[in-house]
Design a protein around this nucleic acid. Structure first.
Length: 109
DNA sequence: TGTATGACCCTGA
DNA sequence: CTCAGGGCCATAC
């Protein structure tokens, strides 16, 4: 039961194209689990490292990095995003750059 | 069986 | 911007 939900979430996350981003809530919806944003965070936390999920492309609402400022993971996520050309300022994906946050947002058809 | 705690979200004050 | 309050639900104790 729960294992399937995890797989659904993992599958959805691996599908996020490089350089694009998605939100916890968005992933939940896309995975067919509307309203369960919380479970997405959990799924990422318990994901086997071997899956090599692009977890850094998953952000909290508004393009914010969910980890506390100053935490190692926060820095790591920002680093990975910038490495893909995504601008991050004060722990949040810059929306005013070129493409709007909506443009960057991965929106599968 | 209950309570507490999250890689969350949304609305409203 | 912050806070509170309600929803959500797997895990840990």
């Amino acid at each position: 039961m729960r294992a399937e939900a995890l797989e659904l979430i993992w599958r959805t996350v691996v599908a996020i194209p490089r350089g694009e981003i998605a939100t916890y809530g968005g992933i939940a919806r896309r995975a067919g689990l509307p309203g369960r944003a919380r479970m997405v965070g959990h799924a990422l936390k318990v994901a086997p490292p071997t899956l090599a999920l692009p977890w850094h492309r998953v952000l909290a609402a508004g393009g914010r990095i969910a980890f506390p400022r100053g935490s190692r993971q926060h820095a790591e996520q920002a680093r990975r995003l910038r490495a893909e050309g995504v601008d991050v300022v004060r722990g949040r994906v810059i929306a005013s750059a070129e493409p709007d946050l909506d443009e960057l947002l991965w929106k599968p058809k």
